[in-house]
């Protein structure tokens, strides 16, 4: 890796921004990354989530994945888990929907009712 210094710098920044919460993330976003999720566009969904968070300068939110939840026809599924709040599940989250979730739910603090899985 040519960018070791860059990665080290990011690690230090993240540590600093999480110290106030004793090392915990403010929120976790979990993308359905089973065969069904991937085929439905979960990779693009994750790219959009990562890109939007990065642009917004948000450093204390983690984006990770889970497997098939048994609702293949509603993939890509995205769960937003904000510390201290009940988790919210969204269905059919394409790249545009992913950016909306970051703006309204993560930044704005209001869940996106039109996208909630239910």
């Amino acid at each position: 890796m040519k960018n070791l210094d860059e990665l080290r710098k990011i690690r230090d920044e993240v540590r600093k921004s999480m110290e106030i919460r004793s090392g915990n993330h403010r929120a976790k976003i979990v993308v359905g990354m089973g065969t069904c999720g991937i085929a439905a566009g979960a990779r693009e969904t994750m790219q959009a989530l990562m890109g939007e968070l990065e642009q917004a300068g948000i450093n204390d939110v983690a984006v990770t994945a889970t497997g098939c939840a048994g609702f293949c026809e509603r993939e890509p599924l995205v769960d937003v888990e904000i510390a201290g709040q009940p988790a919210v599940r969204y269905g059919k989250v394409d790249a545009a929907a992913a950016r909306k979730i970051v703006q309204e739910h993560i930044v704005g603090g209001r869940k996106v009712d039109s996208l909630v899985f239910g």
Partner: peptide
Amino acid sequence: ELKTEINGIDFSNPKVHKSISTS
């Protein structure tokens, strides 16, 4: 190696994601 070089690296972090993808 990367995890040894940069103890505590978080691949779920958006900035780390971008940096790895770019390189």
